[in-house]
Amino acid sequence: MRAAADVVEAVAFVWLGMVLAISFLEAPLKFRAPGVTLVLGLGIGRLVFRALHVIELVFAILVGCALVLGNLSWWGTGALGLAVVLLLAQLVLVQPRLTRRSDAVLAGAEAPRSRAHYAYIALEGVKVLALLLGGVLALALR
């Protein structure tokens, strides 16, 4: 049982670090770099976020398995379960809109800014809080 909690701790904090580094650091900063155009930034962003989403799905599966096997509190289970639900909402509800817009821009069209970015950022912010709370509560089992 302790091994499952160890997995939850490790995955929660690594997942948290990746989301913070990519979504809140890399994504906005790449557009400030000299010579990075909107098209180039979108191309880079698609690659980076595709990789992040694959890793997040693996982490979500690991967390799910560990939660089934472990003895985490209801609050910890709920927080990490929320992180998984938020990830799925991002991938199913928001990402397709962002992809359609970036497809249009990459094809040379003038696409208006998407409000989907704000939804993605809001979900990402709540996911960060859920991962932090879930990881801290997993640590509290020690």
Rank of each mutant, 00 (worst) to 15 (best):
Q90N: 15
F24V: 04
W15M: 03
L52C: 02
V58W: 01
L98D: 02
V36W: 03
A89P: 00
L29S: 14
K30N: 06
L98I: 09
A27H: 01
P28W: 07
V19E: 00
I22C: 04
L40R: 13
S114R: 02
I22K: 01
G70H: 05
V94C: 05
S114L: 07
L40I: 12
E56G: 06
L91I: 11
R50D: 12
L106E: 07
V39N: 09
V54N: 08
F31L: 10
F59G: 06
I44W: 08
T37D: 10
G81C: 11
F24Y: 13
A3M: 14
L62W: 07
A51E: 05
G70F: 02
E56T: 02
A27G: 05
G81W: 02
M1D: 12
V54Q: 12
A51M: 13
V58F: 08
G41V: 10
M1C: 09
V54M: 11
S114K: 06
T99I: 14
L40Y: 05
F59P: 04
V92H: 09
V68K: 04
V8Y: 01
V11K: 05
R97K: 15
G45K: 03
L62M: 14
L57W: 13
L67H: 02
A83Q: 04
V94K: 01
V7T: 15
V8M: 11
R32D: 07
A4R: 07
L69H: 07
D6G: 12
W74I: 13
G64L: 08
L106I: 12
L82C: 10
L62D: 06
L42Y: 05
M18A: 15
I61S: 11
R115S: 15
L52A: 11
E56I: 06
M1G: 12
S23G: 14
V94D: 06
L88Y: 08
V7M: 12
E9H: 01
P28H: 08
A89F: 12
V94E: 05
L52I: 03
V36R: 03
R46G: 09
L52N: 01
S114T: 14
L57K: 01
